[in-house]
Every structure is written in C-alpha cells, then in structure tokens.
Simulated scan of single mutants.
Amino acid sequence: MSRIKITENSFKLTGLVMVMFLMMTLLSGCSQNDTVTRSDFLLDTFVSITLYGESDDSLLDKPFEKIKELNVTLAQSDAASDLTLINENAGIQPVPVSEGTYKIIEKGIFYSTISGGYFDATAGPLIDLWGIHEPEIKEAPSPDLIAEAQKKIDYTKIVLNPSEQTVYLTDPGMELNLGSVSKGYIADAVMAVIKDEGIKHAIVNLGGNVLVMGGKADGKAFGVGVEDPNNPGNGYIGVVSLKDGSVVTSGDYQRYFTDAAGKRYHHILDPFTGYPSESGLTQVTVVTDQSIDGDGLTTTLFLLGLDKGLALVEKMDGVEAIFVTKDNQIIATKGLKDIFSFDEANYGSTYTYKLLE
C-alpha cells in the first residue's frame, strides 16, 4: 500500500516494510520449517503469499502465475486488456470479454446500484482527470474539467449481454474503472488456485487485501492488523482474528497529492461532487468471506459515510465493518465482538472505541 513518502523508491520501500511487518506478525507462533512464502512487486503493490504446513516452494508457482495472468487481462491501461477494449469502443460496439472481466463488471454494477451511484463503475473519466497515484505536489483540476468528466459517469449505461458475454458502454467518452474491485477478484482467484493444489492453510496479501484460509497449521486463527490511519505504516489500532475470510482496508491516506498551498486531495472520489469524498471518514475496514466484496465495500462505505454505511452493512449478510471518523472515533459492527480486539493500551488516548450492539 502507498504511504506518506514523496519519492517513488521510498514509496515502494515503505509498502514493502508494511507487508513484511504484517507477515512477521502473522507468522509468529508457527514453525518456519512448516511454511513457504514468496513476495513480489505486482499489481502496483507488494504481493505476498504464505502457505502453512508446506515445504515445497514450487507450490507458489501457479498462484503467482495466476496473478500475472489476471493482471494482463484486467489492466486498466494495457492496450490488449478487456477494459481498454471496452473503453475504446464506448458508443461504438459491444466487446466480448473474459469470464473474469464479466464477473467483475457485474460486481461493479452491483455496488454502483446498492450505493445509489456513490460507487460508480464508470467513474473512469473522473479518476483519470485527477490522476492520483503516488504522493506529489500539483494542482487540482479546474471546476470546468471536473464538470465535463462528471457528464460521462453513469453506471446505468453499461449494457451486458450474458449470452454473448459482451459489455457495451452506450456513450462515447465513457470509461470503466474497476480498480476498486479487481484486486479483490484476483485475491479470490489466487486462493482458488491454492485450494485446487490441496493446500489447507494459506494467506494471500495483495497490498492490503488480505485473504486467509484454514487458520494456522496449529489450528489457531490468523491475526490481521488494522492500520492506524493517523500514523500509517507505523502501527495497528487493533487486530482481526480470522481463520477463513477477507480483511480489506481503504483510507484517505493511501494515495493523495498536495497543492502548492498545502491542501491535500485523496484518491476516493465522489461522483456527485467530482471531488475527493468528504464523508467524515478517514478509514474503513471490511471483513467478508470474499475479497472482491471487501474491496467493493470499503470504497462504497467510505463514500456513503458512517450513518448510511452502517445502514447498508446491517442489510447485508456476512459483512462486518470498522469505521474510523475524522474526529477519531472507531465504530465496529456487532459481529466483530469476538474477532476484533482494539488496542486500548496504545490507542485509547487517541481514539474513542465503540462496539455496536
């Protein structure tokens, strides 16, 4: 995940430190002889996969091949990717796509619908205009350019043909951007490959999308840290204990830029205002069965804000969430009672913690 440093090299190094720190936390209590692990820089982040109760490093070959395969298929900018072809043919013709791309777009439409458009799978023109990646100093786009980009956003204009597995954007200039769900889809697909190899205990960490299976080899749950948004990269406000499932976190500190006057603009953009979201939240963590849902929901809940976000979570089965507000409140949904531990000793003076009942 991206962190607060400005240069590209230090940005990547800090991300690596975070992944390695998390992996050391998760590996504690397990025999190193009973694990195999591999890390690489893929999907614009550091990726780690660890298998427990295994000693054959070659078991990691297929999972990493799967990541590379899907990265090509789902890349936003690759000339041969499905998403590029869909966007290039907006207003022209439907485009046949892979099964994975089709499923991701269906999921993007789902979250666009249940959020009332706060999450919009066609927000590509706005995301491209702002161009928020690594921390840097630059100026915000003009209001006129923002308004022009907003005109091209409308998820209801995505036309799917299930019989032919095609996708069509009805208006020229429209653009799908599924970065908020694609990494989760990849994590789920990689874990499926691991299961097919007969492995029972594993962690897949795609730069903050953490997916676990089977608990540790000794039967204990994994501990997944929830980052401190006020000091990212340097501590966890608590730990989620989980044997099977996904933990995904999104925050306004992950990608941003600063203008010459010192105003900071983060990457979670509100399609209705055209600007970075001002929902009152600084971070959302979602615990779900599948990583694709955790991915989509962290962005959705951040954009909706605390009250609307909680209302949505209450309607969904198998979804729990931890909200952190700008005034340093932490609100955890009731289903996390037995699996989330807030670090009161170290963070009780900074945050007010509330577990809903």
Results as ranks from 00 to 15, higher is better:
residue 156 T to P: 00
residue 208 G to T: 09
residue 296 G to N: 04
residue 26 L to T: 10
residue 326 K to F: 05
residue 356 L to D: 05
residue 228 D to L: 05
residue 33 N to P: 00
residue 218 D to P: 13
residue 233 G to R: 06
residue 236 Y to V: 14
residue 157 K to F: 00
residue 55 S to V: 06
residue 100 G to D: 13
residue 242 L to K: 03
residue 67 I to W: 05
residue 199 I to L: 04
residue 68 K to Q: 13
residue 342 F to K: 04
residue 55 S to N: 10
residue 243 K to Q: 13
residue 30 C to G: 02
residue 319 V to Q: 03
residue 246 S to G: 01
residue 149 A to D: 04
residue 323 F to T: 14
residue 300 T to M: 13
residue 166 T to K: 06
residue 39 S to D: 14
residue 191 M to N: 10
residue 149 A to H: 05
residue 313 V to Q: 02
residue 217 A to I: 15
residue 11 F to M: 08
residue 284 V to N: 02
residue 9 N to V: 07
residue 356 L to H: 02
residue 146 I to F: 08
residue 160 L to C: 08
residue 153 I to D: 06
residue 337 K to S: 13
residue 77 S to K: 13
residue 246 S to A: 11
residue 217 A to W: 12
residue 153 I to G: 07
residue 342 F to A: 04
residue 201 H to T: 08
residue 327 D to N: 15
residue 89 N to Y: 03
residue 99 E to R: 13
residue 313 V to H: 03
residue 336 L to T: 10
residue 196 D to V: 00
residue 268 I to D: 03
residue 34 D to F: 10
residue 355 L to G: 01
residue 247 V to C: 02
residue 218 D to K: 13
residue 350 T to E: 02
residue 17 V to F: 11
residue 125 P to Q: 08
residue 116 G to F: 06
residue 288 T to A: 06
residue 26 L to M: 15
residue 130 W to I: 08
residue 177 N to Y: 14
residue 315 K to M: 13
residue 310 L to D: 08
residue 104 I to D: 09
residue 357 E to I: 02
residue 305 G to N: 11
residue 260 A to M: 10
residue 228 D to V: 06
residue 304 L to N: 09
residue 19 V to D: 01
residue 61 D to K: 03
residue 64 F to W: 06
residue 165 Q to C: 09
residue 120 D to I: 11
residue 211 L to R: 01
residue 192 A to M: 13
residue 111 Y to W: 12
residue 153 I to H: 09
residue 133 H to C: 01
residue 268 I to M: 08
residue 117 G to D: 11
residue 161 N to R: 09
residue 322 I to Y: 10
residue 96 P to I: 10
residue 103 K to S: 14
residue 62 K to D: 12
residue 104 I to L: 15
residue 90 A to G: 15
residue 89 N to M: 07
residue 167 V to N: 01
residue 177 N to E: 14
residue 312 L to T: 12
residue 320 E to H: 14
residue 179 G to F: 07
residue 175 E to N: 08
residue 240 V to F: 04
residue 94 P to V: 08
residue 205 N to K: 01
residue 19 V to W: 00
residue 326 K to L: 13
residue 25 T to A: 01
residue 284 V to P: 03
residue 131 G to C: 03
residue 180 S to Q: 05
residue 309 G to R: 07
residue 204 V to T: 03
residue 222 F to H: 04
residue 125 P to S: 06
residue 78 D to N: 14
residue 254 Q to H: 10
residue 88 E to C: 07
residue 9 N to P: 00
residue 6 I to Y: 15
residue 74 L to A: 01
residue 252 D to Q: 09
residue 181 V to Q: 01
residue 129 L to R: 05
residue 183 K to G: 03
residue 249 T to E: 02
residue 39 S to A: 15
residue 127 I to W: 04
residue 57 D to Q: 12
residue 184 G to W: 05
residue 177 N to I: 11
residue 227 E to V: 09
residue 177 N to W: 11
residue 50 T to H: 01
residue 199 I to H: 02
residue 117 G to W: 11
residue 23 M to Y: 04
residue 63 P to C: 10
residue 30 C to R: 11
residue 245 G to D: 05
residue 262 G to L: 05
residue 41 F to C: 07
